[in-house]
Computed example of a mutant assay.
Amino acid sequence: MARILIADDEESMRLLVGRAIAMDGHDITTAEDGAEALEILLRDDGSYDLLLTDIKMPVMDGIALALAAARDFPQLTILLMTGFADQRERASGLDAIVHDVVTKPFAVADIRAAVADALATRRAA
């Protein structure tokens, strides 16, 4: 299946999303913030199929991470998550590099469907 990097500063969210996506057989790596996620991407030479990142995080937020990841690894599919309307608005201009923005809170089925859709779109491209 796919290699997915999850970046979220809330441990409970990383665990929930990681378990949900792993149910579909994906290989999951997690990061506590955008800076750690970018370090992982650079270390692994961008060898991930999907970056799933929260927008609002300390150190480096998800939008800065998405911009850096898209610059360095243009083949990487990016999916953002947020529970804040203002953060969703900030992401609205990133359609060229971000597949979608998933609104928190979400059901396990919703995040699994969003990931499946992002991966299907990636394969079709």
Score class of each variant (00 low, 15 high):
106 F>I: 03
92 S>I: 04
30 T>R: 00
27 D>N: 05
29 T>F: 13
50 L>Q: 02
100 D>Y: 09
110 D>W: 00
110 D>C: 03
104 K>R: 12
75 Q>Y: 07
29 T>N: 05
57 M>E: 05
116 A>H: 08
80 L>V: 05
122 R>E: 04
122 R>G: 00
115 V>W: 02
120 A>M: 07
44 D>C: 10
84 F>A: 15
55 I>P: 00
107 A>D: 13
10 E>L: 09
26 H>S: 05
54 D>H: 05
69 A>W: 15
35 A>R: 12
65 L>W: 13
61 D>G: 12
118 A>V: 01
120 A>Q: 11
111 I>Y: 10
15 L>A: 11
125 A>W: 09
81 M>E: 01
45 D>Y: 06
51 L>N: 04
28 I>P: 14
30 T>V: 14
116 A>Q: 13
48 Y>R: 01
69 A>Y: 15
65 L>S: 02
10 E>H: 08
5 L>F: 14
107 A>M: 13
83 G>K: 05
81 M>C: 15
105 P>I: 04
16 L>E: 03
76 L>W: 14
120 A>Y: 02
15 L>C: 06
12 S>G: 03
107 A>W: 09
119 L>E: 06
102 V>M: 14
121 T>G: 01
94 L>Q: 08
30 T>Q: 11
24 D>H: 01
32 E>T: 12
24 D>T: 01
109 A>D: 15
97 I>L: 14
55 I>A: 11
14 R>Y: 13
75 Q>D: 15
20 A>M: 07
6 I>M: 07
113 A>S: 13
108 V>S: 12
73 F>G: 00
87 Q>G: 12
87 Q>M: 14
95 D>I: 11
95 D>L: 12
92 S>N: 06
6 I>L: 11
46 G>H: 07
24 D>P: 08
50 L>P: 04
124 A>Q: 10
112 R>M: 11
17 V>Y: 11
73 F>T: 07
42 L>V: 10
92 S>K: 13
51 L>S: 02
21 I>L: 15
52 L>C: 15
74 P>C: 15
20 A>C: 08
109 A>T: 14
112 R>C: 03
48 Y>C: 01
38 L>T: 00
94 L>G: 00
108 V>E: 14
9 D>L: 08
93 G>R: 09
64 A>S: 09
91 A>C: 02
123 R>V: 03
51 L>R: 02
36 E>L: 05
35 A>Q: 15
91 A>N: 02
28 I>L: 11
74 P>Y: 15
